[in-house]
Design a protein around this nucleic acid. Structure first.
Lengths: 150, 150
DNA sequence: AGTCATGTAACTTATTCTATTACGTATCAT
DNA sequence: ATGATACGTAATAGAATAAGTTACATGACT
């Protein structure tokens, strides 16, 4: 199955933006993520619409954080990306009238709904500043052998 | 993202097999699931290897339950299918050396691992006989307006 | 005016689940 | 024995979709 990696990538970008003075262009972000600037704009558009980043055109333009990391949770980013489907396992709906299928799907839906609720509430509890703090920790633990921060 | 519907389909089939005298051919199962007999054999192969069903060749052959529904949990079926990936959201690994990426991925992995654990333990608690019981309930509730059981 | 940067539609590519084809093997009925 | 039935499986094709690319428009700064 193909994974949607936008959440991971956007978190990565947002934290880099926080550690960066001024704005960053889509081109630079694209290089950072090994992807294409158009993909960056497309994905960041959701974050902009939700008010977490701002984009400016022209000289000196690019992307800049519109809110502090403390005020952005994983859930916020997930929702800004359009609440993409979380599960790779789905229910079959070939025979919606079949009571066996209904029972099977009810059991599966119950389980997946509960897991999704758990994930979402966990996402709500973690802010980007939490992740940034974890980064600082890792950074301090590796001062003798610096790692890339791209 | 594309959903893996094998779990849902196999549960559906197993319960029908329990309510069916004798064996069922891959052709019949395929019609039941709106799919192809080769797909059925391929998917059921996992269940056979795990000992939940048996397959017989030749006249009168086909598939038959090898164990009672009480002894098959959702987790058993999931594992028999090869423990397919559960989440449609994944982490980016473009820069494994980047500490920011590491922190982001650690946060996401924590959350997804916890959700997966929860799902698996829930799967372990539900047996196919539980689902069959739910089916019986739905069936009784609809005697005045029979529904398809295909 | 010219350059830089985003906005977005349209199209292509890559990946992967599903479906199909083709052929092999085992079993049963006659 | 022999033909029909049914599974086993490799190889290939199809379909859905996330990601990548091209092309062009719009806005902003110098």
């Amino acid at each position: 199955m193909r994974h949607d990696s936008r959440l991971s990538r956007m978190l990565h970008v947002l934290i880099h933006m926080d550690r960066h003075d001024g704005s960053i262009t889509s081109d630079n972000i694209a290089k950072m993520l090994n992807t294409n600037p158009v993909v960056v704009r497309r994905t960041m558009a959701g974050l902009r619409n939700a008010g977490y980043v701002r984009s400016d055109k022209g000289h000196g333009g690019g992307w800049i954080l519109a809110r502090p990391l403390e005020e952005i949770s994983l859930l916020d980013v997930h929702q800004a990306l359009g609440r993409p489907e979380m599960f790779a396992i789905g229910i079959a709906i070939d025979h919606p009238d079949c009571l066996v299928e209904q029972s099977v799907n009810a059991a599966l839906t119950d389980a997946f709904d509960a897991a999704e609720q758990m994930l979402l509430s966990r996402f709500a509890e973690v802010t980007l500043s939490d992740i940034a703090r974890d980064f600082d920790l890792r950074f301090r633990n590796l001062t003798e052998r610096p790692a890339r921060t791209v």
